[in-house]
Design a protein around this nucleic acid. Structure first.
Lengths: 253, 253
DNA sequence: GCAAAAGTGTTGGGGATACACCCATGG
DNA sequence: CCATGGGTGTATCCCCAACACTTTTGC
C-alpha cells in the first residue's frame, strides 16, 4: 500500500492516492480524524508463590526518559491490536500469557507528541525466578503488586484498572491457574487467592471449596515446601473446565 | 492550536509546527502511527416493559449507505472518549444514560477509508414509547434484542459483546434499574431480569430474593397492569445501595 | 522446644430451589 | 367462564462460615 497525504488542520480537506489503481478518495471532513496514535500497554502479573508482582520497564527514550513504564508499543495502522500485544510480549520474551483487554484511557493531553490513546491489557504469566536476570538485561524488573512506583503517562491508572479487573476475574473464572506453575500445592493456590483478593481464608474451608469444584487433578506427587514438610501437588483440569463451562457452569469463588 | 503536517508514508519523517511558539518537533518514526482514526459506537438498550430493545440508526452516508448502524461518531484528536459518547447521546436526544465502555475492536481492514478502531460502549436508558416518533424523525428505530439485522462495519459484533456484558452486569450490579421507569412493579422487574438473563424464575423465589436485598422502597402506590389488576409500585433505593456498596456489599442476583 | 506449614470434620444457619392455590379483572 | 397476571408460605438441601488439634520438619 502506498499513500500520500497532506493535512492542514482547520482546513478540512485532503486527497488520498492509494495502490496502483490510484484510487482518489476525498476523506474531507473525516481526514482530520486520522491523526490519532494508538498504543498498547500490558500489565504483566507474576506470582512468585509468595506475592503478586508486576513487570515494569526502565524507559530509555524521550519522553519521560528515566521513568518506569509498562511494556508498551505503538499500534501501526496496518497491525491489529492483538498482534501488537503479542509483539510486546515477544519482545520481552514472554510466552503463553493469558491476555485480556482493558478499557481505553481517554485523556486528551496525555502525550506531548499528540493525541495518543492507550488500549490497556493485562497478562498473567508463570513467574520463573530463573528469568529475572534475563529480564534485567532488557531493563525489566518485577515490582511488588502493592509497591508500584510513580510511572510515566497514566500507567499507574492502567495498573489500578488491571488490579481491579484481576480481582473480579479471579472470583468468576479460574484465571489464577495461569499465574501458578503447572503443578502446585493447595497452600500456594490459597496464598495466590489471598493476595489477589486481599483477604484471608480458613484453610479447611478453602480446601473444601476448591475440591468441590472438582477442577483439580491429584498428581500423587509431593514437594518439600518452605516449612520442610511434604505437600501434595495438583494441576488444573483445563479440559474439564472447558466442558463444564460450555454447559453453562459458572466458576465462582 | 495550529499545526501543519506533511506525511509521506514509507518515508518516515515529518515536521510539526505548533502554536505561536513554533515548536519544531520531529516525530520521525513515530509519525507513521499518527494515522489512525478512532470512532465510538453506543449500544443503547431500552426495555419497553416487555422486551429488551436496541436503538439503531439508518445510515444515510457512504460508506455502507442504506445499512443500519449503531449511533456512532469519530473521535476528534482534541476530544476525549467520554465526551464523544456524550455528544452521540445528545445528538439523539438521550439523557441520563448509564454508560460503560466495551473493548476496542481490532480488525485492521474494517473501514475502507483507513484504519479505524472502534471503542464500543453500551448505554441503558428508560424506554419511553412517546419518544418513538421523535426517534423516527432522526432515522432511529428500536429493534428487539434478539432480532437485530445485519449491520455495517462490525457493529453486530459490538452488539454481541454488549449483550454479554449486560448479562454479566445485571447479575453483579443493580444496573437493571436504569432500564426501568423510576417507579415499577415487581412483575416488570422480573420480566426484565428474565429477558436480560434469558432465563425464567419462580415468582415467589424472585420476590424473596429481591426483598432480601432491601434495596426496594415500597411506594404505597399501585397501578393497573395489563391483566387489569392492581399492582404495587416500588423504586430503587440508590442512596442505600451506594452506602452498602462502599461498605463492601456485593449485589448478586 | 518452637516456629512453620500440612492436613483433617463437624455443626449451625441462611439462602436457593421446588412447588400450588386463590384472587381480581377484562373480555 | 376463562385467560391474565398479582400475590402468598413451607419444606428441603446445599453451601458457607466458624472453629482446634495433630503432624512433620528445620532451626
Amino acid at each position: 500500500m502506498f499513500y500520500f497525504i497532506i493535512i492542514i488542520s482547520n482546513i478540512k480537506f485532503a486527497l488520498i492516492l492509494r495502490d496502483r489503481e490510484s484510487i482518489v478518495m476525498e476523506r474531507k471532513d473525516i481526514e482530520e480524524y486520522f491523526n490519532i496514535a494508538l498504543a498498547t500497554s500490558v500489565v504483566v502479573f507474576g506470582f512468585d508463590l509468595d506475592d503478586l508482582h508486576i513487570l515494569l520497564k526502565y524507559n530509555t527514550e524521550a519522553p519521560f526518559k528515566g521513568a518506569y513504564i509498562l511494556p508498551s508499543k505503538y499500534i501501526k495502522p496496518e497491525t491489529s491490536i492483538d498482534l501488537t500485544v503479542k509483539k510486546i510480549l515477544n519482545s520481552i520474551e514472554v510466552e503463553d500469557a493469558y491476555i485480556e483487554q482493558l478499557n481505553a484511557s481517554g485523556k486528551v493531553f496525555r502525550n506531548p507528541l499528540g493525541r495518543v490513546v492507550n488500549i490497556g491489557h493485562y497478562g498473567l504469566i508463570r513467574f520463573d525466578p530463573k528469568e529475572t536476570a534475563k529480564f534485567e538485561k532488557m531493563g525489566l524488573k518485577w515490582f511488588r503488586y502493592d509497591e508500584i512506583p510513580d510511572l510515566a503517562y497514566d500507567h499507574n491508572q492502567i495498573i489500578d484498572f488491571a488490579k481491579e479487573r484481576l480481582k473480579r476475574r479471579v472470583k468468576r473464572r479460574p484465571v489464577g491457574f495461569n499465574l501458578l506453575p503447572e503443578e502446585f500445592t493447595i497452600g500456594q493456590l490459597q496464598q495466590l487467592y489471598e493476595k489477589a483478593l486481599n483477604k484471608s481464608f480458613d484453610k479447611r474451608n478453602f480446601r473444601k471449596k476448591i475440591f468441590n469444584s472438582e477442577l483439580l487433578v491429584d498428581l500423587d506427587k509431593s514437594v518439600e515446601t518452605s516449612s520442610g514438610k511434604e505437600s501434595k501437588l495438583y494441576k488444573f483440569d483445563e479440559d474439564k473446565y472447558a466442558k463444564m463451562s460450555s454447559r453453562g457452569y459458572d466458576f465462582l469463588f
